[in-house]
Design a binder for these strands. Structure first.
Lengths: 225, 225, 225, 225
DNA sequence: TATGAATGAGGCTTCATTCAT
DNA sequence: AATGAATGAAGCCTCATTCAT
């Protein structure tokens, strides 16, 4: 009885170890340059064993992708809830912080998804991924609609806000990773706060006095979400 | 005498044709999926001939990269000049427009550079690339410094502006290309104008009445450049 | 006591289920393309359990082969008995009908045997298979000998009849299966009867004057069976 | 000038050597058990070189198949011509002799075709193959039609003759190869002539009174071709 | 006794680069 | 100078069989 459960658990654990190892290697060596054999070696199992857990290498990657997307969605759901309770910048910050928590990882997943789409491997899983993403987008759009109705942000199609904010965060992720900027950026923390400030205030209709964004964004005013 | 010159010219012309063909193919099929053979076929020369012009496939890509970067620098230099004559948003717009002129191409070059860096092929050429980029950055930074001294934009390290703007454009490029957003974005032009508006006004210290950026950015106020 | 018997019975039953499942799958998917895992899944047992019953995958196939051959031999033995009672075409018909009863199956076994021989797996079992087959052949040969003595079929080595008939049936089996002929053959039943007719009358010596077959064997008289 | 021609010739020659080597190996080891590497080794070239000549392993096999089928068609065309000049058995003999000239090879091609069809690789080439075959069949059918009109062979659908003859030859090929019969058959030549005689006279209407074939087709008279 | 996770050899294919002509 | 045939390392995936539980 117990034995069976234990076995299943060990199986799941190994699956996780495969995923972990794959992620590690991807972060270390980049999307290309990770082979199934490397993954197997790192987990210290045979190549074939990988295929007991995953149908293909792509499926491993898709799993990583989905897990990441889901955790992002989770955090955003909470933040959207908070926004409805008044903390209007919560989603913007949650989104920014989630994705910037580990920019390398975020970027990796961008690339991974892109490649899988380009080669048209696993189109159904990609569709599923987009479903998750769309659910988030809808929730955010509702927040924007409300803010627009309240006259706090400029009236434009709601997706302008989501898209623009996405673009900014996307760019920030790339910036973080960029070798070219590495030498220039002395105060990365500060810069990121600055960028987040910009993001949070997209579309703001300010009747207020000039922002005193001394340094970190006075993240508060009306905003993204 | 003349013959020699002609020969050299033909040689150069063919080199350009190789570069053009490579770019075309890269845009058509993506970074992975272009082979030296395909390039040779499109130029209608032998594979071996390619290696008379370029030491490796990577070198072809590096040349494309450099050419792109140089043309970008060129346009920016002009715009920085204009900024110094008063058209303060010129560099921001020039940068945005240059990169968004063909987002697919811009993105391609991002990926290419990244890949070359990752595999650490051609480190010296990469260094050269960064030199070009840094020259631009310096010029821009001087523009920002001046605006800050004039109290038109918030006082932060100058590279904050450059970096943030870069991030936004970078993100816009990705957005343009993104399959996930493709369905959502109905008015791409409008969105891009909106994003540019955001970029142009980063850091603005507005004592003025709320922006009426009805739609396209009332690109004017103090800004990026 | 009883328990033990029951156990043995259950064991045997399962063995049969494995064999049945294997045959089904082979017919569905072809020789290559059936895995041990598929068989286990269909029987709803573990892969390992299969190896409690059979030493190897080849052994499963060999068992199927032997069973088929034995049932064929059984039917032929009866028919040879009938031939001795006067129904001279009984063996020919029995043989034809047995093999044509399920041409797909018959063909499958041909292929299986061939493959096992080619890879020289299980040479002793193959030898045993041939022993069964030879027993049949001998019985048939005796029938032919008698017919020749009676002057009903042409006098040639007895195995000519057996072999030729085998060839014809073999060919009919292939014909049945052939994709190329599928479109052409409108009346399969009619064709098969026609072929059987040919087979049954191989070597017949008609009451007519001998054929002057320019080229080779002139054929006539009652036949194979 | 000449150099180029020479080069092309050497290229073609190598292609032929690949085909030859593949055929040799297939005959030696059977369809399964021949790897691309083996072929390359035998020709003493690199594995990759094979793929300069052929798109895939399947294509090599298809080429062998087509070549074989074409040579068969060629010979039959001649024989059908002869049949029209009076040598009525010419096609039957040509067909039999062609296929029996190297039964191992003939059988190999049967298997190869079958496998390629089963795995649905190269469906267009298979279609082309069948086109060749159908052309032959049509020609033969016309011969049969005429014989039936002349009252020399039994009146049945024309494809009965073609199919039955095909079946017999097919079976003879298998017989030739069969390990089980190997020990039994002492006079192979004689047997083959015997079988061909059977084939040549399928459907013959002798000058004698019709056979009372209890069961079905009564067979006799000049035939097939 | 039954299980099924683990194994790893082995097969096909791709493509940047070389080099003889 | 131009060619393109040849190379071979490297990658993904399959599956019969084993063996610890």
């Amino acid at each position: 009885m117990d034995k069976a459960k234990e076995k299943v658990q060990r199986f799941r654990a190994r699956e996780q170890r495969i995923l972990d190892a794959a992620l590690e290697l991807l972060l270390e060596h980049g999307e290309e340059k990770v082979t199934v054999e490397q993954i197997a070696d790192r987990v210290d199992i045979g190549k074939g064993t990988i295929y007991k857990h995953f149908v293909s290498k792509t499926e491993i990657y898709m799993r990583l992708l989905m897990d990441y997307e889901r955790s992002l969605a989770e955090r955003l759901k909470v933040a959207v809830g908070n926004a409805e309770q008044g903390d209007i910048t919560a989603p913007a910050r949650a989104y920014f912080e989630s994705r910037m928590a580990d920019p390398g990882k975020d970027r990796l997943f961008q690339r991974l998804e892109e490649k899988i789409i380009a080669l048209n491997q696993a189109p159904e899983m990609i569709a599923e991924l987009h479903t998750i993403r769309n659910a988030i987008a809808s929730a955010l759009n509702r927040v924007f609609e409300r803010r627009m109705e309240q006259g706090m942000i400029k009236r434009v199609p709601a997706y302008y806000y989501y898209s623009t904010y996405w673009a900014l965060v996307q760019g920030a992720v790339e910036l973080y990773h960029s070798k070219s900027f590495a030498d220039v950026i002395e105060d990365r923390e500060g810069l990121m706060e600055f960028i987040m400030g910009v993001g949070v205030h997209i579309g703001d209709i300010s009747s207020r006095k000039p922002q005193e964004t001394s340094h970190s964004g006075d993240i508060a005013g009306p905003s993204f979400g």
